[in-house]
Computed example of a mutant assay.
Amino acid sequence: MKNNLDYPAAEATKPFGRYLATALLVSAAYVLLSALLIGFKSDQLVLAGIFTALYVSTPITRKFILGFSIFIVFWVIFDYMKAFPNYWFNEVHIGSLYNAEARLFGIHTAEGVLTPNEYFQRHSIVLADVLAGLFYLCWIPVPLGFAAYLFFRDRRSFLYFSLTFLLTNLIGFVIYYLYPAAPPWYVQEYGLDFIAGTRGNTAGLIRFDHFFNITIFQSLYTKGSNVFAAMPSLHSAYPLLVLYHSWRNNMGFMKIVFGMITVGIWFAAVYTSHHYVLDVLAGIAVATTGIILFQTLVAKSKRFARFVEGYVGMIS
């Protein structure tokens, strides 16, 4: 005869077992695929471990990680781009982009016409170095922190922001492959000739590292997926997405804060020679396109709207 006192406890273990099996299967598939495409890294085990722990721990952590899986998808795609460099598929734009920047935004000096990047390289100041580094450190923590806030405040708003973020990145990634482009620091270091496999470079952000005697940006830029992915500047797109959704959610004073961060990142991108002004403008255009496209899909596509509603229900 079945012990009725033991039955509820036995039943309670079944969902946990299913959740654990699902999490381990997904994590194992991710680690295996990553090892095949880009080689094994300890970071992959960390990500898999976080996913598994949150998925099996509690209902709220499960909903949290299911929601934030949107950002995990972004990161995995970004990481896997290392396996398929965009310069395999199209010519890298170096001189043409540099010349366009000089023609449209060139600064006339005694040395001749300089791009804004070249001008700032020659006229850097410590305060701007520090501010640029601080602003550039915001490019991922601010969107993630904003998403976490929305998750606990309004799951629908969280999902709208997160899916718009992913959609904006996908648009940017497509452009990376259609229009490979070298950043300003590449021209400063190597000239106008294409050199495949060039490693990432901290460029002007090295001054921030030197000022504080740290290696934070040096460490970050050794992990870059592709040097020739400067156009559009997704660094410039992310804070604009946050700013838009802060206005949409009527966040009061924080709208001003996010506005300052947005402009600060735009300035830092150019000041540190990581992006041309043209790259920043393209990033703004991509973010705007992502916002409009997402809103259009929700309003016009019943299938997409049902998907979003289902996702909201899953994490609520």
Rank of each mutant, 00 (worst) to 15 (best):
P141I: 04
F146T: 06
L134R: 15
F194Y: 12
P184M: 13
P180G: 02
G191K: 12
Y190P: 04
L131I: 11
G191M: 09
Y176S: 05
F165C: 00
F152Q: 12
T164P: 02
Y177G: 01
Y179I: 15
V174P: 05
Y179N: 02
I171S: 10
V130E: 01
F165D: 00
L167Y: 14
V130F: 12
F135L: 12
G145D: 01
F165E: 00
L166K: 11
G145N: 02
L150D: 01
L166S: 13
V174G: 13
P184L: 10
A147H: 06
P141W: 13
Y177K: 01
Y186E: 04
V142Y: 03
P183T: 09
L170D: 08
F158T: 02
V174I: 08
L178V: 06
P184C: 04
D154P: 01
V174S: 13
I175Q: 05
F151G: 10
A196H: 05
L131V: 07
A181E: 15
G145M: 04
A148K: 14
L144D: 07
A147V: 07
N169I: 10
C138L: 09
L178G: 11
F165P: 00
I175G: 05
L163E: 14
F173Y: 15
V130C: 03
A196F: 03
G197T: 05
Y179K: 12
L192T: 10
G191C: 13
F194P: 14
P183W: 03
G145V: 01
I175R: 04
Y136N: 05
P183D: 04
L134F: 07
R155F: 03
L137I: 08
E189H: 12
I175W: 04
F165V: 00
S157N: 13
L150A: 01
L163W: 08
V130Q: 03
Y176P: 00
G197D: 07
G172P: 02
G145E: 00
A182N: 05
R153L: 14
Q188K: 14
L192C: 04
Y190A: 07
L167C: 14
L137K: 07
Y190D: 03
F152V: 11
L131Y: 06
D154W: 00
L150H: 00
V174W: 09
L150W: 00
A148W: 02
F158D: 00
Y179S: 02
Y160F: 12
L131C: 05
I171C: 15
F152I: 07
P180F: 15
N169G: 11
V142T: 07
N169H: 08
A132R: 15
R155S: 09
S157G: 08
